[in-house]
């Protein structure tokens, strides 16, 4: 088996933190591989798995439209490439999204994850919070969730598995090769969620 290559979509947001977490996860698993920052359709088509990091979903979506990354992502995810969407990444993967205050917007979405998202679901920055969450379905009984102006999943379609909830709101989901979280695993030292994702990528390749 050739080396795993996991890409971090590097248009905007906390790319470096996901880079470090993914490297650390590969190390802990003893998996040979590389992590690369990707921006262009060509770079996207070369990776085995991709993380869409935290950032501003409106901005990342618009930029993906401009350089053709949007179509490349849609095609690659459709063909089974594992993808992890974090916060803004979760929003971008979704079928539908609306803002808690502003309501529906015209923001471009990948429309590959059959969920409806509420953006800024827990409030503005002052209400950003840290709390322990459990993702039993991922074999992660306890994880320090860092929620920053976080979205939540309002409705899930058939085929979407709920992995975790906080205060009655869905904050982590899985649909086949797509994994998405409201919180930021890359902002903690615990790399267990990134490890699960690396395993998904490794399994998809073997």
């Amino acid at each position: 088996m050739s080396e795993l290559d996991i890409g971090i979509l590097a248009l905007q947001g906390d790319v470096a933190e996901n880079f470090m977490s993914t490297m650390a996860a590969m190390n802990e698993l003893g998996i040979d591989g590389s992590v690369s920052q990707v921006k262009t359709p060509d770079q996207i088509s070369a990776v085995d798995g991709l993380i869409i990091p935290g950032g501003e979903s409106t901005m990342i979506g618009q930029l993906s439209m401009v350089n053709g990354a949007m179509n490349a992502l849609k095609e690659k995810i459709g063909s089974g490439m594992p993808v992890l969407g974090i916060c803004a990444g979760m929003i971008l993967l979704a079928k539908n999204s609306k803002d808690r205050v502003v309501g529906s917007t015209k923001q471009p979405l990948l429309d590959v994850l059959d969920v409806e998202i509420e953006r800024n679901s827990f409030g503005r920055q002052k209400d950003s919070f840290e709390a322990e969450v459990s993702l039993d379905a991922m074999d992660i009984p306890s994880f320090q969730g860092v929620f920053i102006r976080a979205p939540a999943v309002l409705r899930t379609g058939s085929g979407v598995e709920t992995l975790g909830k906080f205060n009655e709101k869905i904050i982590a989901v899985k649909q086949g090769n797509i994994l998405a979280t409201s919180f930021h695993p890359e902002l903690t030292r615990d790399v267990s969620l990134h490890k699960q994702f690396v395993k998904m990528v490794a399994d998809s390749k073997s």
Partner: peptide, 10 residues
């Protein structure tokens, strides 16, 4: 600080 990280490259 994490909030500021989400603004990076923007």
């Amino acid at each position: 600080r994490g909030f500021a990280h989400m603004l990076k490259n923007g």
